[in-house]
């Protein structure tokens, strides 16, 4: 039975109930948790590091940490908060490792060029020819703009808008106050608006 099928059979169980069942020895409950969050985590990490294979590897590492430390899980937070926090820390470690080694994302290099372009804006009031951009191209431009955001704005924005976490959950994942999360996401949106001002999404 696949993880997705197992997750489906446990659909009426809450995350905390599955963690409890796993702690009592039910490995299928753990697999159901994996099935419930595996796609979200892989996509989330991939959005941050742009390396699918490594994103899969890090998502598995996140679940391994859950597997080994489930007894330390405190039910006062949602399970999703916990697993997203682990995944975020792993992704940040990877980003820092790349920065230490002087390796940059291609996206970031492109973002630098975009910044340079912005210093010499050409006024053009004609209807933007990119109005008819395909969805994938628009997504790529948005992704590039998001990648050029400072990390403190990028992470809460992705968690809230791309992963559909609430403001409250985002603040718990990142361990920052609710007010700070809100102001950072607002700032991220304003920056994105500026970066994409010449591009019709």
């Amino acid at each position: 039975m696949s993880s997705a099928a197992i997750a489906q059979s446990f659909v009426s169980f809450g995350d905390n109930a599955l963690v409890s069942a796993y702690l009592e020895g039910d490995e299928l409950a753990f697999e159901a948790l994996v099935g419930r969050y595996q796609d979200k985590l892989v996509n989330y990490i991939n959005t941050l590091i742009h390396d699918y294979d490594l994103a899969v590897d890090l998502a598995q590492e996140a679940f391994i940490r859950v597997y080994r430390n489930a007894d330390r899980y405190e039910g006062k937070y949602q399970f999703s908060t916990w697993v997203y926090r682990i995944a975020t820390n792993l992704a940040i470690d990877e980003i820092r490792r790349r920065e230490r080694k002087g390796r940059f994302f291609l996206y970031n290099v492109m973002a630098v060029f975009q910044k340079e372009d912005k210093e010499f804006p050409l006024p053009d009031t004609r209807e933007c020819p990119e109005r008819s951009l395909g969805r994938s191209e628009r997504l790529a431009k948005l992704q590039s703009a998001i990648d050029s955001l400072p990390e403190k704005y990028r992470l809460p924005f992705i968690l809230k808008e791309a992963q559909d976490l609430s403001y409250d959950e985002t603040s718990k994942v990142l361990k920052i106050s609710l007010g700070t999360v809100k102001s950072r996401i607002h700032r991220a949106k304003m920056l994105l608006r500026e970066k994409l001002s010449g591009i019709a999404l």
Binding site: S2, S3, E31, V34, G35, Q38, D39, K40, L41, V42, N43, Y44, N46, T47, Y52, V56, A59, Q60, F63, R135, R138, L139, L142, Q143, I146, F157, I158, E161, A162, Q163, D164, L201
Partner: peptide
């Protein structure tokens, strides 16, 4: 558009 960024290939077969 940001909602679409959360989508993607997801986990591969045999992930768990």
């Amino acid at each position: 558009l940001s909602v679409s960024l959360g989508g993607g290939k997801g986990a591969p077969q045999g992930f768990s």
